[in-house]
Amino acid sequence: MAKPGWRNGLAAELSAEFAGTLILILFGCGVVAQVVAAGLGDHDSIAWAWGLGVTFGVYTAARISGAHLNPAVTLTLAAFKGFSWGKVVPYALAQTLGAFVAALLVRWNYSEVLAKFDPGHTFKTQFVFSTLPGNGVLPVSEWGALRDQIIGTAILLFLILAVTDLLNTPPGANLGAFIIGLIVVAIGMAWGADAGYAINPARDFGPRLASFITGYGTAWRDQYGNFYFWVPIVGPLIGGLVGGALYKYLIGNFLTREGELPQEPGRVPAPEGNR
């Protein structure tokens, strides 16, 4: 027999985070595989599919977990919006697992295409799954990529907080998920050159691990031979906190009413009678 409140408990939230992140990566890594290895589409295809993947992932999980889908989001909400610190690590693990499983599905489905385009499973197709400095082509150092990830994720979290703050002017008609997807599209189009706009530790580490165990021996390094996997983990975590702080002190503090309880952006408020 299920425990009281089980359907609304942590297990349900972790299941939603897993499912929402899985949806995100199915579209994200899937489109990169199609463009890079199959030659179908272009940069704009990638930007739009990643953004739509975010939208669909948020619609999948928002009612149950808030649809963070990103450890940087979870950490920032804990730091600035009252989200439970005890849920930060479980959420991050569920998000990373969802990304890992989705990447395995992409790897399996596109196995023939990837093998024909890049038989040695090299950097030519590594960035189907994980990011590289300069997208594997431009001369960008790991430190330049770290800077890029901090800035890009700061933009992401600043805007997520702006469009989900109920005291600001959030999108109506349940369009919040669509607007967040557009934020990711815009970041991809404007901030994608230096480091591939991972802006999400789970999005990068989960697929990176999946690629490593399926034949990409250089998954942890960049094209210069440096250990790189830490950049799209550390950069987004720092950037999320920077973005959260900027929103709080530039906007949020001027919106909060005295005695207002912290919000968890993305969560659907309970009806008045159930509070």
Rank of each mutant, 00 (worst) to 15 (best):
V54L: 15
V31C: 10
F56W: 13
L22H: 07
Q34E: 06
S15M: 09
G30F: 05
L14W: 03
L10E: 09
F18N: 03
G57V: 08
G57N: 06
V36A: 03
W48E: 00
A49L: 14
N8M: 10
I46M: 02
S15C: 08
G9H: 04
F56R: 03
A11P: 00
V36Q: 01
G39R: 14
G41V: 12
E13D: 09
G51R: 02
E17C: 09
G41W: 12
S15W: 01
L14P: 06
T21V: 12
A16F: 11
V36E: 00
I25G: 00
L14G: 01
G30K: 07
G30E: 06
V32E: 02
W48T: 02
L10G: 07
A33W: 04
H43R: 07
V54I: 15
S45L: 14
V35F: 11
G53F: 04
G41Y: 06
G41T: 12
D42S: 13
I23Q: 10
F18V: 08
V32K: 08
L10K: 12
L26W: 05
G20Q: 01
E13G: 09
F56T: 10
S45N: 13
D44E: 01
L10F: 11
A16V: 12
L52G: 06
G41D: 11
V54T: 14
V32Y: 01
W48L: 15
T55F: 07
A38S: 15
E13C: 08
L40N: 11
T21K: 10
L24S: 03
T21Q: 08
L40P: 00
G20F: 02
A33L: 09
H43C: 00
V54G: 07
G57Y: 03
L22K: 03
F18C: 06
L40C: 01
I23M: 14
E17Y: 09
A33Q: 04
A11N: 11
V35M: 12
F18P: 04
D42W: 05
Q34A: 09
I25H: 00
L24E: 03
G28C: 12
A12Q: 07
I46G: 00
L26D: 03
G20L: 03
E13P: 01
F27C: 13
E13R: 15
A37Q: 02
I25V: 15
G57W: 04
G28Y: 08
E17T: 10
G39M: 14
A47Q: 11
A47V: 14
A38H: 08
G20I: 05
F18W: 05
A19R: 03
G28I: 11
D42F: 09
V32M: 04
N8L: 13
A12M: 08
G51I: 05
A49M: 15
L14S: 02
L22G: 06
I25A: 01
L24P: 05
F56P: 02
A47K: 07
A11F: 11
A33N: 05
A38I: 13
G9Q: 07
A12E: 05
L22N: 08
D42P: 07
L52R: 02
C29S: 15
A49S: 14
E13W: 00
D44W: 10
F18A: 03
D42Q: 10
